[in-house]
Amino acid sequence: MNAFINTFRIPYIGDGAFRVWQRNGNVWLKFYRPSLVGNLGEPILYLLALGYGLGKFIPDISGIPYIQFIAPGLLVSSTMYSACFECTFGSFTRMTTQRTYDAIIVTPVSIEEVIAGDIFWGATKGAIAGLVILLVATAFGLVGSPWVGLVLPLLMVEGLLFASLSMVMTALAPTYDFFNYFFTIAIAPMFLFSGIFFPLDEFPAWAKTASWFLPLTHLVTITRGLFLGKLHISLLINLSLVIAFTVITFYVSITLVKRRLIK
């Protein structure tokens, strides 16, 4: 019973999590250049190929040129991918092959703080990736409203969401190959069907309902609203769902990793 309570109690997260975040930051700073190129590369290619290339053949969507339509979605998807890679492959490596977690939890930093620190770091990396795209989109003249400043805190929340979700996968993964399921079954469909490349309004009701269960859909909707300055009260519902999903996955991920490591 005691063990049960220990596993499921609300975790105490103190400054140890920051220490772990700092450790990951130190490592990142050693190789930040290739990392940033990676963050920039793919979304810009999408923006050019689909936005300019394919966009030439596509009529404006609700009065917006295609490239401007897809820019907000490419931004949030780039945060999603970055946070997900960090907290699957990155965290799994630190947890298993490198035994970095083992080394840290014999110091005053607790296991909960190690996991939380790793998630905060994944979120930070995701936010950095999104920020890079935001700068590019601004340079391309694709941002039409000062409300876009609110994208920054939103990216942090989004980063936390996908970093936590990935940490859940890391807790369950027997090997690296396991992450193929996650990326193929969850992340890739989310990238394609969250309203980044085409509006979901035209689809049958069931498809729209289904897309509501993809957290990325809400993030795309909010970000597009902020990009264009078209704010609607319903965005708060989108935001609440994102936050609720984040809190739950964060808690579940800590519980599961703890259960995996502490025997």
Binding site: G16, R23, Q98, I104, T107
Partner: peptide
């Protein structure tokens, strides 16, 4: 920590304390 040098290993570890 294989991502860090000898010196960094100890410095980062000190921070945990």
């Amino acid at each position: 920590d294989p991502d860090l040098t000898v010196f960094e290993n100890l410095m980062v570890y000190a921070r945990y304390f």
